[in-house]
Design a binder for these strands. Structure first.
Lengths: 112, 112
DNA sequence: GGCTCGATGTAGACAATGTCGACAGATGGA
DNA sequence: TCCATCTGTCGACATTGTCTACATCGAGCC
């Protein structure tokens, strides 16, 4: 929130994955989204730790899923990105976009 | 290099700043570029530490500047990004671009 | 009823990154 | 000479990223 605050590399990806999943952001879905979209594979523990830390900082929030815990023990949590989480993503994205500007020829993967 | 390797948040910005500076990437210039383009302000110590660690991993290299050390003591170093550094930036950028896709309405700063 | 299995989530330990301020070496000028 | 300035080094510590092992609960099966 304060200008000059940036998310860690993994934090950023997690926030984005949650946003993409809209109302279906359970932990396991986030894990799958990270893998599919970004090739980022981590253990569940890693994800939960990050989620907890971001919750403490107010970037994400979660609700226990009410309906049909038919399968499996613990009630699962549904994550969402808070307003300040979105703000964080915005500043980070702006910074990267500005740094990338002009470097596209170098950074765009040449077709092998 | 190995698929599934990502730069830290600050590392990524530093690499990009060096690329932008082309042949003028002294430490102090990198610091200024990070500030100007990304609003990322850190101390010199922070930058040097990161640079050293990335040199150890082969993402950056440096040469001592020959010409005219007229002012100041230590000869200054000129940094450049290695091929594997560029590769690292590419994978990271691709991952982010994919995650961002579709979220532009949320992430684009609405004009205040 | 007890077992095992799958789906969650938790905890502890440790590695990698990010961060700063204080210090060191050298040179040019007052 | 002495000091300011420019550059880089170092040690300490905070934050983030990472995993494996473990705890919980419900369902289906004997």
């Amino acid at each position: 929130m304060a200008p000059g605050e940036f998310p860690g590399e993994f934090e950023q990806m997690v926030l984005l994955a949650i946003l993409r999943l809209e109302d279906g952001a359970h932990a396991l879905a986030v894990l799958a989204e990270l893998d599919e979209q970004a090739g980022r594979r981590v253990s569940r523990g890693t994800l939960y730790k990050t989620l907890d830390r971001m919750e403490a900082k107010g970037y994400v929030a979660w609700a226990v899923e009410e309906a049909t815990p038919e399968r499996g023990g613990h009630p699962r949590r549904l994550f969402r990105v808070t307003a300040s989480g979105v703000e964080l993503l915005r500043t980070s994205r702006e910074a990267l976009v500005r740094l990338w500007t002009g470097l596209e020829p170098v950074l765009r993967r040449r077709p092998t």
